[in-house]
Each structure stands twice: as C-alpha cells, then as structure tokens.
Design a protein around this nucleic acid. Structure first.
Length: 755
DNA sequence: CGAAAATGCGTTTTT
DNA sequence: CGCATTTTCG
C-alpha cells in the first residue's frame, strides 16, 4: 500500500502521530479515536522507510490484540511483519528470559506457575511453617507478594522495610516476609517463575547484567507500548531502560480508561513519562469515530465526575442515535429474559446478527442468567473469560505431565501428577520422598528416579513405575520429537486418556473431548508455519501466557452474542451493548467501596463499558438477586444517576415493571425461596418439572400448525388450537396452561415452538 | 491408601 | 447454593 493512500484517511493529529519521526512520543487516545489504526500505520510506515522489523518492539495488552495488529501490518507491508517483536509484556519478556535464563540461574525450560500453582505452593509453605491458615490465607499472602513484586520489592527488601513490616504486624501477619522469602526460594528451586516474576526477573536481568541490557537496548530501535495507562512500575521501568539508547519510544494510553490499578497499574506512569522524557511530544486523539453522539456524551458526563484526569475533550461528529434504554427487572433471571428478548427483537427488527451484540457485566458470576435465557431463545452466545479452557482440571493435568517432562524440578506439576491416575502414592509417601530428598540433599526427582537406592518399603514399585514413565517421556524430548508427537504419546501412556475414556458420564465425555481438543491445539501449534520452535517447552511457554481473551476462535462460528466482564471488553467494540447488573454494591463493587474511598476506578470502568457501544446502548438492573442460595434485595446503582439523564430512556423501565408477570412479585418469590430452604423441595419443582425435556426451538418462520406445543415468554406453555392464515398475517389461537385461551398475532419474539 | 462425609468459603476485575 | 479442601472411616 502506498503511504498516501492511508494517510489521506487520517485526521490531522492521527497523521502527525503516524509521521512522527524519532524521539519520545505520547499519544493520549480517547475511546474509539482510531488508535489501533494509528499504531498499525505507524509501524507499517517504519518498515516501509527501512526499519528492520526485528528491531521493532511493540507491547500490547492481549495476545489477540497483537495478533490482529500483526496481521493488519502484514496486509500493508507483507510477511516481513512477522518478524516484529510483538506481544504482551509477559510473553515478550518470557521469551527474552528464556534466551537469557542462565544469567539468573534458571534453565531455558523454566516452568511458568499460574495463579493456582502459586497459591497451592503458598498453602504448602504456610502449612510447613505451622501457621494458622485462617490468618494466613493463601489468597491474601499471594496478593501481598504480588504487590511487592510489582513494585520491585524483593523478599529481602520486604523483610527489611520498616513500613511494610509495620503494616503486616498491624494486620497480624508479620510472617509474610518469611513466606515471601521461602516462596521465592522454592520457585527458584523448582526452576519456575510466576507471572510477576516474568517482569521482576526481567528487571533484575537488566539491572545486574549490563551486557544483556546493552544488547537489547541496541537491538530495539523503536519501542511501542499500547494501553500505557495499565502498565505498572515494573513494566514501565523495563521499557524505559530498553529505550534509553535510541529514545524512540511511543506510548499510547488513555487515563480515562485506566482500570487495572488493583494489579499495580499506575496512572502516574503517564506523569513520570513526561518527567523522564522532558522532550516528549504529546498528541491527543480526541475525535471519536465509533459511537453515536448520545453514547459519547453520556460517557463524558460520567467521567467528568472524576477529579484526577488529564485535560482532554473527546467529541464526535457522528449522528445522535437513540437514547440509552434503562431496563428494570424484578430478579436476575428476569433480567436475563428481558435482555435476551430485547436482543431477539432488535435482531429481527434491524436484521442484525448475533455478533453485533455484547452483554457486559462486572463479575463473571453474572453470566448464568443470560446464558439460560439466550439458550431458551436459541440465540448462540460465547463467553469470554470465566473458567477458561486452560483452567479445567483435565487440561491442567495433562499440562502438568508435559511440564514435568520438560522440567523435573517443577514442584507443583509433580504434586499434581504423582498420583494421577491413582497409582497408590498418597500424601504420606510423597512427604517421605521429600524428606529423603532433603536428608540426602538431592532433588525430589533424583529420589524418584533412583528409588531403589533410597528405597523403603512396598511403595517402591509404583514410584519406580512413575520414574520409568517420566524417563521414557524424557527420551522423546531428547530425540527432538515435536510437541505434538510427545504430548499425544504422553496423553496415552500416562493413562489420562484411558481414565477419561472409561468415564462414561456426560462430564467424563466432555473432559475426554477437552483433552482431545488440547491435543488438536498442540497439533495446530506445531503445524503452523509461524511457529519456529516446535519443541514441547516452546509450546508450554506459549500456552501458559494466553490471556482469557485469547481463547481459540471456535470453528468459524463467529456469529454469537458475546458475554464478558467489562475488564475483558477493553479494546473491543460492538454495535449494541448491554451493561447489566447496574446495582449498588455490584457495580460499583462493594469491595471497591470498602477498600478505597474514591469511586474513580469504578467510574472509569463504567466509562470503558459505555464506550464499547457503536449504535445502541442499554442499561439494566435487577431488584433482587439470587446469591449463594439466598435472595438479596438490590438497589439501582448510583451510576444510573451519574449519567446525564437526558440521554436515558426510562420508558422501558416502567413498561417492564408493568409487564413483570413472568416472575412472581418479589415478596412471593422470596417466600418460595425461604420455603425451599426449610421444607425439602416443595411446589416450586412442580412448575419446573413441567418443562418438557425435548428442547423448544425458536421459530422465525411462523410455521405453526394446530396441535403444536409452544412456549410464550409471558403466558407459559400451551397448545395451538386454531390457525388463521391470511396472506402474510398469521393468527394463532393458543390454549395456555396458565391463562387459558389467547389469540395471538404472531409476535414470534415471545413465542417458541416445540419441534 | 482411597472413598465418603463433613466442613467452609466465596464474587471484583487479570497477566 | 456449589465447589474445594479437609477430616473421618473402612
């Protein structure tokens, strides 16, 4: 593509950003202001003007974002784009650490501990120290350690820091420093890094080994950081060091969209940047091309309440668009039904596809009621995040085998697989092995591999069997077999596949399929011509850093309603967006209100959610919510009042309150639930058992006939007694169980037919 | 040692 | 309530 072709499509500040030559640049890019285009064009242009792609480092927020950007650049400049160093902070620096591992005393096969591994390791350490695990909760301890690492505080720093120690003592957890120290040692002994270590150790690497720093400083001629507002100190320091020589650093961010302070992101990075690079040029992208003016203005009216923000005026010249609907529901289930119906109707009226819709919520747990309602209407959906594929037990089990095959020091992987499938090696035996190992001052694997030398009693046989098994896997690695050959062999030889295959329950079947799917994924990884290193350890590295937005795009089946948390929605856009669960204590979240005085981050989160919508936005809230088996009464969120009211359409609110006859009034609803708790399982089940097991399917063909069974959203189940067809008009008379005979002009949005 | 029973905790958000 | 971890018992 010729420069001028794309340059002519840009506005003035966008063009300036693309054409900016050398030296530091900060782009403050409002939501929907075309920042991805700017970044893409800028990189394409660098390559066209002769910069070697190998010398461009581009850090993005998700692997998906980087993949998309890479393919767009590829479209402009060709396959050269593949050579750009592009990815998340974690993946790029894991790659560098892998190359330079020996400087830090790791091998390049180091394991990456996910949060579960970390917490499980902490749990064992807490236990070993005989600390009360009700005081020292793995979760809390982990968060403390993680916070410290993100501020580049090592275990020793932590112990020697008077202020931190005071804090911990006040919280009655003065042992955290010791736990941190042991945790770090154990990770190191296991040849493992957790997520935070990937950044922490990169800092250590660059701090302690100037030669290595020198190499990368000179290598990367251009450094680009997307979503700069969400970087933490550790990340910022890395980029600052890397760009210290060439000083070609471009950061792109929007302080109004900073939503990761809880994991150490620091808006002050934006201010520090101006201090560290006094000659920085600042370009503001303020025109929104994404959303209607109603949406842009509503979003601005929300964020205007925040005190701390950079001066910026976002505007749009797009059409006004429709008002924001506010939908009130009696319960979380009704909220699900109302949204699902709204999607159905909007889809039909405007001839839209499923993929035009997104439902955004504050917490993953809210997805349930929407899933059920959408499924009932036969609307396809996908859930981003939540329990991801890679967190499933069977997947983690196989991955643990793979990890242990590559790295026998991986303590967490060992614990997972030593008795899986059951081979008669229980906790006591494992503890014995650990004791033997430390008595003889050797690694656990050494004991397992040579159990005959250390041998005790009758548990020798299974241990030896396990050792032989792993040894046979190791041989495959040494022979240089690729990741797929090795993993498919391990899946079979370990007995994991067999065990799942023999489990004939529904869950067992789906687990078996999941393992197969993982194997398919590995095959794809190996077969892809973009994969240079096809080894098992390369695969493991790539897989452990997948973001929850990186789930495999299912079989070309894109046309689905997307459901996800607002956090996951960052960087995405949808024609129609529903922001649901707008209730006080849920959004804004109670925890946020407790732990911090100000609501600013929650408000920014709301801002992010609003600005995902292109044409049409809806809010919803429920008056009651089923939580932990109890009914909780909810109040509308203060955020509903923080949006300038002239952008809201509250008609639907009244309407839905009037129509709310699918759900009993809240009082009876509550009573039913109470009854259900005390008396075994009464009447309520009668109503549910009425649901036929064969699935109802939605119809958009009106092909009703006498005798068909139908379900109407308001009136419940019924049978068609009479059909009147008059040209294109169809009238059905239906006898409903609940309300008797009704004549319907077919409003198919509310009617489903049983096949 | 492993299966069954009892306990207990959780819902912020994610790399 | 539902899942995960811990305790109990055969």
């Amino acid at each position: 593509m010729n420069h001028n072709d794309y340059l002519s499509t840009l506005n003035e500040p966008q063009r300036e950003a693309v054409l900016h030559g050398n030296g530091p640049l900060m782009i403050i890019a409002g939501a929907g202001s075309g920042k991805t285009r700017v970044l893409t064009y800028r990189i394409a242009r660098l390559i066209e003007t002769g910069v070697d792609p190998f010398r461009i480092l581009s850090l993005t927020f998700t692997n998906k974002a980087s993949g998309e950007m890479r393919s767009r650049i590829e479209g402009a400049v060709g396959t050269e784009a593949r050579n750009i160093w592009m990815g998340t902070f974690h993946s790029v620096f894991a790659k560098i650490l892998r190359i330079e591992a020996r400087y830090l005393g790791y091998t390049s096969d180091f394991s990456i501990y996910d949060t579960d591994d970390s917490k499980s390791l902490l749990r064992s350490i807490i236990k070993e120290y005989n600390l009360d695990d009700k005081v020292y909760k793995a979760n809390v301890v982990f968060n403390r350690i993680s916070g410290a690492k993100n501020r580049l505080i090592s275990a020793d720093d932590y112990i020697n820091n008077a202020i931190i120690q005071q804090d911990d003592e006040a919280a009655k957890m003065k042992e955290i420093g010791r736990l941190y120290k042991t945790y770090a040692t154990r990770c190191f002994q296991a040849n493992a890094m957790d997520f935070d270590d990937l950044l922490f150790n990169t800092n250590v690497l660059f701090r302690d080994f100037p030669d290595v720093l020198y190499k990368y400083q000179h290598k990367f001629q251009h450094v680009m950081v997307d979503e700069f507002q969400d970087t933490n100190v550790s990340q910022y320091l890395i980029t600052r060091k890397l760009s210290a020589v060439h000083r070609n650093i471009v950061v792109v961010g929007d302080d109004a969209q900073s939503i990761y302070a809880f994991r150490g992101a620091n808006i002050e990075n934006i201010l520090n940047f101006e201090k560290d690079f006094p000659d920085v040029r600042v370009i503001k992208l303020e025109q929104n091309y994404r959303s209607t003016s109603t949406i842009v203005n509503a979003a601005n009216s929300v964020i205007a309440r925040n005190k701390s923000q950079l001066e910026k005026h976002t505007f749009t010249s797009n059409e006004e668009g429709s008002l924001i609907d506010v939908i009130k529901a009696g319960s979380d289930n009704e909220e699900g039904r109302l949204i699902a119906t709204a999607i159905f109707e909007e889809k039909m009226q405007k001839a839209l596809r499923n993929e035009h819709f997104a439902i955004l919520y504050r917490t993953n747990a809210q997805s349930r009621s929407f899933e059920e309602a959408l499924r009932k209407l036969g609307i396809k959906y996908r859930i981003v995040g939540g329990q991801s594929f890679y967190q499933r037990k069977e997947i983690k089990d196989l991955l643990a085998y793979l990890r242990f095959t590559v790295n026998q020091r991986d303590e967490e992987a060992f614990k997972r697989i030593i008795n899986l499938p059951k081979r008669g090696i229980g906790d006591t035996t494992v503890a014995k092995i650990a004791v033997t190992a430390s008595e003889n001052n050797v690694a656990i694997w050494d004991v397992v591999a040579n159990i005959n030398q250390y041998g005790t009693g009758r548990t020798i046989a299974p241990i030896e069997g396990f050792g032989t098994l792993i040894k046979s896997f190791k041989i495959l690695v040494e022979e240089g077999k690729d990741a797929y050959e090795i993993s498919s062999h391990i899946a079979k030889a370990s007995g994991i596949l067999r065990e799942l295959y023999e489990d004939k329950t529904v869950e067992g079947l789906s687990r078996y399929e999941n393992v197969q799917e993982l194997l398919n994924g590995i095959k794809e990884f190996v077969d892809s011509d973009e994969t240079e290193d096809k080894s098992l350890s390369a695969f493991l590295q790539s897989v452990s850093l997948l973001t929850n937005a990186d789930e495999p795009d299912d079989n070309n089946d894109h046309d689905r309603v997307t459901m996800m948390t607002i956090h996951s929605a960052k960087g995405l856009e949808f024609r129609n967006v529903f922001i649901v669960g707008l209730e006080e204590d849920l959004f804004p979240s109670q925890m946020m209100l407790e732990s911090r005085q100000d609501l600013e981050e929650e408000r920014r989160l709301f801002y992010v959610a609003i600005t995902r919508a292109e044409k049409k936005l809806s809010f919803s809230y429920a008056e009651s919510r089923y939580q932990w088996g109890r009914l909780k009464m909810c109040e509308p969120s203060r955020f509903l009042l923080e949006v300038e009211q002239k952008y809201l359409n509250v008609n639907k609110m009244v309407q839905s309150a009037l129509e709310r006859d699918t759900t009993p009034p809240v009082t009876t609803f509550a009573r039913n639930l109470v009854q259900r708790k005390t008396e075994a399982k009464p009447a309520v089940t009668a109503a549910t058992s009425h649901v036929p097991s064969a699935d109802f399917v939605p119809t958009d063909t009106f092909d009703l006939a006498e005798g068909d069974k139908v379900e109407h959203l308001k009136f419940g189940f019924g049978v068609v007694t009479k059909m009147d067809v008059n040209g294109t008009d169809r009238k059905a008379t239906v006898k409903f169980d609940l309300v008797g005979e009704k004549t319907l002009l077919l409003s198919f949005a509310k009617l489903r037919v049983m096949k």
